[in-house]
Simulated assay, not measured.
Amino acid sequence: MKKSMVLLTAVLVALVAGCDNKQPAQMPEVNAENCAPDRIQKIGDRQTREQFAGACSRRSVIAPTDTPKNWLEVKP
């Protein structure tokens, strides 16, 4: 009887161990305002925070121009 109770308890613990109701954190939009270090630190989920920080580090901060220069044609 005692073995069956231990076995039943172990099975129940194994079944319930992977259950949680937490939804993955939503990653905010990557822009200059949200990519500030204090905003990044406010993201609670570590994996989401690291993924967002990586996306912020790869964003382009150079604005496109209407007439880009070809540096091979620039004369000194």
Rank of each mutant, 00 (worst) to 15 (best):
A63W: 08
P64W: 11
P68N: 10
A14Y: 04
R58H: 13
P28D: 11
I62R: 10
K69R: 12
A53T: 02
P28W: 02
A63D: 09
T48V: 07
R46I: 07
G54H: 10
A53V: 01
C35I: 06
A17K: 07
V6S: 06
T67V: 03
Q26C: 07
A53K: 03
C19I: 12
V13F: 04
W71S: 08
V74F: 12
G54Q: 09
S4M: 10
L8R: 06
G44V: 12
D45E: 13
V11R: 00
V6G: 04
L12P: 00
T48D: 01
P24F: 03
N34L: 05
P24Y: 04
V74R: 11
G18E: 11
A32G: 04
R49C: 05
R58E: 13
E33P: 00
G18N: 13
W71T: 09
A36I: 07
P37H: 06
L72A: 15
D20P: 03
W71Y: 13
N21C: 12
D38F: 13
Q41P: 01
I43G: 00
S4P: 00
T9G: 07
A55P: 00
Q51L: 15
A55E: 09
A10K: 01
Q41H: 06
P76C: 10
D66P: 00
W71N: 10
I62L: 15
R49M: 11
Q51P: 06
K69P: 02
N31A: 14
L8Y: 04
T9Y: 03
P68F: 13
E50A: 06
V11I: 10
V30S: 05
A14L: 10
P37D: 14
P68A: 13
V16W: 08
A55W: 01
G44M: 10
A17I: 09
E33G: 04
E73M: 15
T9H: 02
A17M: 14
L15F: 08
T9L: 10
I43V: 08
T48R: 00
A17R: 09
A63Q: 11
E73R: 15
F52D: 00
E33Y: 05
D66L: 14
P64V: 14
N70P: 13
R59P: 02
I43L: 12
I40Y: 03
R46M: 04
G18F: 13
M27I: 09
A25I: 01
K42M: 08
D38I: 11
D20M: 09
N21F: 15
A63R: 12
M5T: 04
I43W: 01
V13D: 01
I62P: 01
K69M: 13
V13M: 05
I62V: 14
L7E: 05
T9A: 09
N34C: 07
V11Y: 01
E33A: 11
K42Q: 06
R59C: 06
Q51V: 15
T65A: 11
K42E: 06
P24V: 05
R59K: 12
A32F: 05
P68S: 14
P68R: 14
